[in-house]
Design a protein around this nucleic acid. Sequence first.
DNA 1: GTCTATAACGGGATAGAC
DNA 2: GTCTATCCCGTTATAGAC
Lengths: 185, 185
Amino acid sequence: MRPTTSKDEIIDRLFELFRQGGFEGVSLADIGRATGLNKSSLYHYFPGGKTDMAAAVIERARAWAGAAVVEPLGRPGPREARIDAMLEAVEALYQGGRRPCLIASMLIGPPDTGLAAAVGAIVRDWLAALTRALVETGAEPVAAGRAATDALARLQGALVLARALGDRQPFEAALAAVRRDLLAA
Amino acid sequence: MRPTTSKDEIIDRLFELFRQGGFEGVSLADIGRATGLNKSSLYHYFPGGKTDMAAAVIERARAWAGAAVVEPLGRPGPREARIDAMLEAVEALYQGGRRPCLIASMLIGPPDTGLAAAVGAIVRDWLAALTRALVETGAEPVAAGRAATDALARLQGALVLARALGDRQPFEAALAAVRRDLLAA
DNA sequence: GTCTATAACGGGATAGAC
DNA sequence: GTCTATCCCGTTATAGAC
């Protein structure tokens, strides 16, 4: 029997759950409900249990960041094209501010299993790619690093505000501000 | 017998726990350990259980924001003095980026009990106070609103990055950037 | 107000049939 | 690969003694 739900699809569902609830806020029962799979079936795909599931989700996030952010930022071409490619990916991932960030959610409360470290690696890669793109298009290295950090902080923070206020406007505003400042950096 | 730990002290401990672990990441056992109180004693202070405790912590955060942020921002005087008062309070609260923000932590995963709404109200008050301070010191209202939102987003996001990277530098950088832009707004 | 004890439940995880 | 059944533990919460 072919599985009714592919592992990729399962991880997609898990991604949505964890970004909303964080590691502790999602139970295996929730996951069973969202995937239509029994706990035992889940253990078939993820022998390490919930931690494995979270790790798979973070790995998916890393892959996404590589393909949708790091790679476009590294493409040769004018700065504007690179930045816009990144921002379009960001807008899509966060659905214009309606959906929270997995990175932020996963940093809250997971009993120390290296998940936080994996999240940190994603952020590091993103920062490095953005900094490099700015430098390659004429920015001075130290200023580029600052600008990259500031850009990511603004986006992350805007997602927090958007969630707290129940209004995606802060996120849209942040996208515009980030674009302006990155192009001017 | 006078209680060995005052309710205020208990809430302080709870504050630290919840900001680190979020609502779901903190158990009553953790709380018992941190406060030296038995579960039953905790129920004496917080009949509604964990939700009550979280609500008390959020209320404390609201009181803090009122005293350390809203009030200084509303004091008559030059913009610089008001902004610096706010930023000093922020730096102290977050210990220069070493400690996460309760607001962000509490937005992750709490089963819907109005806690998120209470958190949202704090953010709203803060934004309103900051916007008003900017307007009172010469900014145009729409620009002031944007600048206020941007400032809070940067600070929140910088805390996320600082946690992800295990490095408080992003937070210090954000404080400087926020100060510069708010004074120029 | 604080304790011990325990109830009642849900959590993650496993065994084994099919 | 998916299921049913079950285990064990931690969790929230309550009762009642002191």
